[in-house]
Design a protein around this nucleic acid. Sequence first.
DNA 1: AGTATATTGTGAATAATATCACATTAAAAC
DNA 2: GTTTTAATGTGATATTATTCACAATATACT
Lengths: 218, 218
Amino acid sequence: MITTKNCVIRLSRYKNALNRFKSLGFVKVFSDNLADAVGVTSSQVRKDFSIFGISGNKKGGYKVDELVEKINIILGKNEIQQVILVGAGHMGKALLKYKGFEKEGMKIVACFDVDPTKLNREAQTPILSTKEMKDFVQSRRIKVGIIAVPDAAAQAVLDQMLEAGIKGVLNFAPITLRGAEDTVVNNVNIELELENVIYYVNALGKASRANENQDFKI
Amino acid sequence: MITTKNCVIRLSRYKNALNRFKSLGFVKVFSDNLADAVGVTSSQVRKDFSIFGISGNKKGGYKVDELVEKINIILGKNEIQQVILVGAGHMGKALLKYKGFEKEGMKIVACFDVDPTKLNREAQTPILSTKEMKDFVQSRRIKVGIIAVPDAAAQAVLDQMLEAGIKGVLNFAPITLRGAEDTVVNNVNIELELENVIYYVNALGKASRANENQDFKI
DNA sequence: AGTATATTGTGAATAATATCACATTAAAAC
DNA sequence: GTTTTAATGTGATATTATTCACAATATACT
Ligand SMILES: NC(=O)c1ccc[n+]([C@@H]2O[C@H](COP(=O)([O-])OP(=O)(O)OC[C@H]3O[C@@H](n4cnc5c(N)ncnc54)[C@H](O)[C@@H]3O)[C@@H](O)[C@H]2O)c1
Ligand SMILES: NC(=O)c1ccc[n+]([C@@H]2O[C@H](COP(=O)([O-])OP(=O)(O)OC[C@H]3O[C@@H](n4cnc5c(N)ncnc54)[C@H](O)[C@@H]3O)[C@@H](O)[C@H]2O)c1
């Protein structure tokens, strides 16, 4: 199976759209419906499904329940995914309070921090010392973690996490971390995303003011 | 100038790398240095610069100061960019406390919420009623906003923002919003990003267990 | 001053990704 | 039961993005 980054992301989007369709009472959907919901072409939808070996019914579209089930298995949503968080600062606390992960079968099972004043083993999600991280991760065979520490500490924290056995990381520090061969690091750089919005707003503004948008493509 | 989404994002990354080079005392850099720092090829760096009309010196590379200056102008960093935030919940508060935006010339000048208990006009960044949003945005000619409200409210909030004159939005609600013709919406879907990490961790795990990674491409 | 060298800048080649278009086929209509 | 219809599934094609490769040239060296 040859997958590319984008087709996995689209798979998640299809799943989200399907859940909305389901809650609206849909029993079957067509590639066109999904395409509209996600903002891609219907052949993109069918091609993606074809890549993941998902098939529907000629003329009959896809049965929503079956499709959700198939996608959930591909995305590992058939079991609860345990995740650790490193960094109990502003961002870390927001993530800890966030209800959305559990709804999607992902659970932050512990948070780690170096600052002793942040620790709290009694909290619903315990905040432990980073010294305890390796043991915790190894004993529970946890494979996924989130980095929410300052940029200067991010690389060291990534190293510690990989050393402990973590294989995939979602990084919020505004510095592009790269992992080893058999690991995944996904960088969410919020500053950069905002900067990007600002660029296009300025670009669109210039284009419309000068009406020179022939040579402007977004 | 034909730009594609990725080359603008890379431009931000080059800028970040350059700032690091600068703080290390570098006076000039070569496309190779930037390529290594950002994780792309050197011809990608030169091609990107060529697209934005940035030129360096044959044999001499690029003078860091000049390059930073040019990129900053392209990215609109020559003036402070005023941004509003809608939603003063967990995520909104984390964003309000975040120091990193100001360092990058972006400032959240006000936050808006529907919940009267969240309002606080005396805070360093005032938290105002959404009813006041339109006036605020129009009088200050603000063009950029951030959405940090629950998904169910996100589309309505986007509509209100565009109605007020906002042209570009960074959306944290886990639903893909799409704007009008002359607007930009950048969706940061954290659940989806984590889901994506989990997919690859599982995929890598399967591939290494079965040693079937011939047909696995990431 | 003249030559060698290292790096840029970019058109051409290649690779990756998305769309098209249509043969196939299950369901609906008659 | 046959025909019509409306969808899927996918190879072929088009588009988009990246890398290659090398001419142009500024700097360093002799
Ligand atoms: N707050 C935001 O809204 C926001 C926005 C964009 C990006 N970010 C990024 O997210 C990251 C976290 O931001 P924040 O606002 O939560 O920062 P913060 O300073 O509030 O929290 C950082 C936390 O990390 C802990 N820490 C520091 N070094 C550590 C280490 N080596 N091991 C474990 N824990 C360590 C600190 O004790 C602190 O609790 C930063 O990289 C920041 O740039 C945050
Ligand atoms: N907290 C996180 O770490 C996190 C992680 C991933 C995604 N998100 C997403 O970010 C968004 C905000 O999350 P949160 O945890 O801050 O939620 P929250 O419930 O803590 O806060 C939401 C805020 O939005 C306000 N609000 C609701 N409707 C509004 C409206 N129409 N106009 C203005 N304000 C309105 C509420 O009063 C509240 O203050 C959500 O869409 C969530 O899915 C949050």
